[in-house]
Amino acid sequence: MIAAAFLIALGIYLACGLVFALPFVLVGAKRIDPHAAQGPWGFRLLIIPGVMALWPLLLRRWATGVKEPPEECNAHRRAARKGVAP
């Protein structure tokens, strides 16, 4: 019973991902990452499985109008943002 519910949820999630993936690889990818603008077909196909898996994240970036990939978060970058060194 739990297993069936889990599998149905997984199926719906991936199906939504597939529906989202098509417009994303055609239009969305270059909106959130300028380097994807001229990506060849091979690249677009390669990222489809990942888009199906992580579509809520990409949908949020696309919807909020993010233009660049995020800057990574590590101790040095955090410390650097706090102020300028002498």
Partner: peptide
């Protein structure tokens, strides 16, 4: 699958390397 699907550099950039 998650690892293979996100193996392209596109994912490295868009998730950021630590994530």
């Amino acid at each position: 699958f998650l690892m293979a699907a996100t193996s392209h550099d596109f994912w490295l950039a868009n998730l950021s390397a630590p994530v």
